[in-house]
Design a protein around this nucleic acid. Structure first.
Lengths: 238, 238
DNA sequence: TCACTCGAAATTATAGGACTAATGGAGCGG
DNA sequence: CCGCTCCATTAGTCCTATAATTTCGAGTGA
């Protein structure tokens, strides 16, 4: 199959297109049973030059999905060495191999990150960062009223809190959280009428504005715990 | 400068060698004032073919350090889009641009991750994972006695706890924590006679063996808080 | 029979040339 | 002054040739 023929978005150029195709194939387990093709085979199969093939393979290598050795060929790495905090890898996983278990594991991570980020934000955030959080909250209020834009508003709020932590390691989770929330909407949408709790989010905002780290941590923890409870209910329900 | 002439380890091949050289140069800010060279210039400058150059650039693109567009050239991305949880990127940062601030920010992340990982480990760890943690602790005891191997034993303990969480997102921090601890030894070594507290680590082990998540969380939090206090003391001292 | 060496084959790694495509800017025409 | 066209620049793509690396097996000698 030629890459240009794929119906969905193939990326800016042939290399990025091939990156998407191969990345998705790898995370969905297409090469768990059969060996990964050689450069030459990939080039023929996807109707691109060896240069394009090699560059795509190198990018996947950089993300931890592949290794290449002369004579041995190119092989898929065990999933334990994939970089899950690479937004491409995470997106492939969530879009193509979504599972409640994966969503629960990701939410377990949020339990660690976001309350602590909120606490940091309460201590460290400057006026602009706090304004971003407030603006995110107000957008959620507006979305609540109209029923539109709820997901993006929710994402905006959580991203604003991460940004306000003034710590690059926490800020790193921006894209990760945004990607995960956006792709899991198919799941959360099943719960009609269940939107993110405005009062809970307001408690986070108020605590950060007051500079109260402990209260911000507690309030954010409550939000994520709520998400977590919903997921665990679903897991029990099957 | 030809890559083969570099004194330090250049990686398995020319492409990986160039990846290291360019990656280090970028994170240390070598291109903050001057524009990033074009493919052709890089190839000439490093005396490699355009193929090698392009593959190295593609790997750096995959890690979020570069973007390339026709006519515009290859440009360095703002550090906010670098993937800090890529072990290469983190290693370049810590080895070449070490600062107390960076170490403190990283420790702030550990405050979020490791206590929660310990709590998960207490709930989820199987016998083999617990055995790994115990073995890590015993290695620390032995290291304490001989004064050798203390750093690697400490790393082993913390990595074993992350592994025991049975959550791939927490396990992802294995290499990151290992890299950070290993490269910050130059700093921690300045505190002669100050080794990781054995009793504190034993409390973590005992809580996990007892399946007591709350106690494991508290005990691990104490360990990281101790590290954090040391860093903040140093920051005040200058 | 066993171990050891050495050669051949497979596959990635490297080099380099030719051409294409995209894009930004200069210059030209209205 | 505006807008269009054309040109220069740079990454993107394709191709071919050769080198380097490593596995596997054939052969060889004890």
């Amino acid at each position: 199959m030629a890459i240009e023929e794929r119906g969905d978005s193939a990326g800016r150029n042939l290399t990025f297109g091939m990156l998407e195709v191969l990345g998705r194939a790898i995370v969905t387990g297409a090469y768990e049973t059969e060996r990964f093709p050689t450069e030459a085979e990939l080039a023929v199969e996807h109707m691109v030059s060896r240069s394009v093939t090699r560059e795509a393979v190198k990018m996947l290598t950089a993300k931890g999905l592949l290794t290449a050795r002369p004579r041995k060929g190119t092989t898929v790495q065990p999933s334990s060495s994939w970089n899950l905090f690479d937004t491409d890898v995470l997106r492939w996983l969530l879009e193509r191999k979504f599972s409640l278990e994966l969503l629960r594991q990701f939410s377990e991570l949020r339990i660690a990150i976001e309350p602590e980020a909120a606490a940091l934000a309460a201590r460290e955030a400057d006026a602009a960062a706090v304004a971003e959080i407030r603006s995110g909250y107000e957008r959620m209020e507006a979305a609540e009223a109209t029923g539109q834009d709820t997901l993006e508003a929710d994402i905006g709020f959580h991203v604003a809190v991460l940004n306000a932590s003034a710590n690059p390691f926490y800020m790193q989770f921006r894209d990760v959280v945004a990607t995960a929330l956006r792709t899991s909407i198919r799941f959360t949408n099943r719960f009609k009428g269940r939107t993110a709790s405005l009062p809970a989010h307001h408690r986070v905002l108020a605590a950060i504005e007051a500079g109260d780290g402990g209260a911000a941590r507690t309030a954010m923890a409550a939000i994520i715990a709520d998400v977590m409870a919903m997921i665990e209910d679903s897991e029990r329900a099957g």
